[in-house]
């Protein structure tokens, strides 16, 4: 499958971050999510809202009169609004592996940025549901001793997810610390 790894400040092509001077200078090398995730989410949006719009329009037009069929515009509007919103949201997701911690940044209106030091990771989980698998995607979730730590990176390439998992596990082991 084709994956586009977009890069931000660092200008590096791959998601793999080499040991280098740019990290020492403090500016993290951000990696975006593959395009497959956006495609999957948009498809899900259409699959859900399309039939709902058609169903409402047909049913109401047939049972209550043509005027009522205008209610079908509601899910349709939601669909048209959701399409660019998903794009914006997808663009906002990015992560960076730094020397000692992992950064995850996400959200457009409700922005959230999480910093998890490698030494605090208790568990790294790679999950992939049936739909995600069909699109060749996998999610990585980090758990620390605090349940509030919500460090999840959705929709990665399976190879990238496994590379990340192995690297995080390795780093976590090297910097492991108790509670």
């Amino acid at each position: 499958m084709d994956t586009v790894c977009r890069t931000y400040a660092g200008g590096m092509e791959t998601g793999t971050v080499e040991d280098g001077a740019e990290r020492a200078q403090g500016e993290p090398v951000w990696t975006g999510l593959p395009r497959g995730l956006l495609r999957m989410r948009r498809l899900l949006l259409v699959v859900w809202l399309g039939p709902i719009a058609i169903g409402t329009g047909v049913l109401l037009g047939w049972l209550a009169g043509p005027g009522w069929a205008a209610f079908a515009l509601l899910p349709l509007g939601l669909l048209l609004w959701g399409w660019p919103m998903l794009g914006r949201n997808w663009r906002s997701w990015r992560y960076a592996e730094r020397a000692d911690d992992l950064l995850i940044s996400r959200g457009v209106l409700w922005r959230e940025e999480t910093v998890v030091p490698y030494g605090r990771m208790q568990l790294v989980e790679v999950t992939s549901g049936p739909v995600e698998r069909h699109f060749g995607l996998a999610s990585v979730q980090l758990h620390t001793a605090a349940a509030a730590t919500d460090a999840r990176i959705p929709g990665l390439d399976p190879e990238e997810a496994e590379r990340l998992r192995d690297r995080l596990t390795q780093l976590g082991e090297a910097r492991s610390a108790g509670l």
């Binding site: 568990l123 989980e125 790679v126 998992r165 082991e173 492991s176």
Partner: peptide
């Protein structure tokens, strides 16, 4: 596909 980090197993003491 779950990997607990060795040594950092406070959550599973």
């Amino acid at each position: 596909m779950t990997v607990p980090i060795p040594g950092a197993d406070d959550a599973m003491s």
